[in-house]
Simulated assay, not measured.
Amino acid sequence: MPTPVSISLKPPMGGTPDYRFSERHARILDAFADTLIPAGEGFPAPSEVEISGFIARYVTPAGMEPKWYPRLAAEQIGARLDSLADALLDPDPRRGYEAVRAFESSEADAFAVLRELVYFGYYSHAAVVRAINLQLAAGQDYRQTPQPAGYLEGLEAWDQESLAKVRGTYLRTEEVVPLAFQPTFAQKGLSA
């Protein structure tokens, strides 16, 4: 009879795909992200591109120890969001701005993790990539991923003459040695 395999309760890197913020926490997190990156000039607000859903993927659920980046435990982020709630959900945006500034000053490491996740989620969203393409002259050729357009648009075509000059080499695995043991140019008689 086979030995039963124990199932690890550790979440995969970055939390779990099934974690969801409560509706209240999602609103607070969206307000936090909107304070960091205001909408305008053709760019959507982070709350419009489901930033709280993106960040939720990186949260370790309650009762599990966060062992991988960004080490966001549901209880910890929930407590931080609760502490920012009154100011971020206030109709006066200045209160939210001041609360975010105070959070940055008092808990720099926690603030940095949330800021990085907001930036990562926002600037990787397809709607924001489209805005970069349309609104920024330097961003017209920016692609979210190399596919399906690929990098071919930015590469020069190889002609047959250039390809004929390419000479490949092959080194057998047993011939590979660490760089520290490679002979120097002087030892090979190649010194300048």
Rank of each mutant, 00 (worst) to 15 (best):
G78Q: 04
G96H: 07
F103I: 01
M64D: 07
T145S: 11
S22F: 12
R80V: 00
Q135H: 10
D18L: 06
P146C: 03
S83T: 00
A102W: 01
L88Q: 01
M1C: 12
F54M: 09
F54H: 08
Y123L: 15
A56L: 03
I7R: 15
V49D: 09
F21A: 01
P61F: 07
Y151I: 10
K67G: 07
L9I: 15
Y123T: 15
P91N: 06
Y119L: 15
A180M: 11
P11Q: 07
W158M: 14
A79D: 03
T145D: 10
A26R: 08
G121P: 07
A73R: 08
I7A: 14
Y122S: 14
D109I: 08
A138I: 06
Y58D: 06
A164H: 05
G139P: 12
E175P: 02
A186C: 02
A127P: 01
A85E: 06
P70S: 06
R115Y: 14
A79G: 04
Y122T: 14
I37M: 13
A31S: 11
F54E: 07
A102P: 04
S162R: 09
A126N: 07
Y69M: 10
D30W: 07
D141C: 08
D82E: 03
F181V: 02
D30F: 05
I132K: 00
D18R: 02
A192T: 05
G53M: 01
Q160H: 12
A126F: 06
V113W: 10
F185H: 09
K188I: 04
Q187A: 09
G42C: 15
L163W: 13
E48K: 13
A31Y: 08
S105N: 05
T60E: 07
G139L: 06
G189N: 05
Q135A: 15
G150N: 07
L134E: 15
A131D: 15
A192N: 08
G53Y: 00
F181T: 01
I132C: 02
R130T: 13
S105I: 00
R130C: 13
L81F: 01
H125W: 01
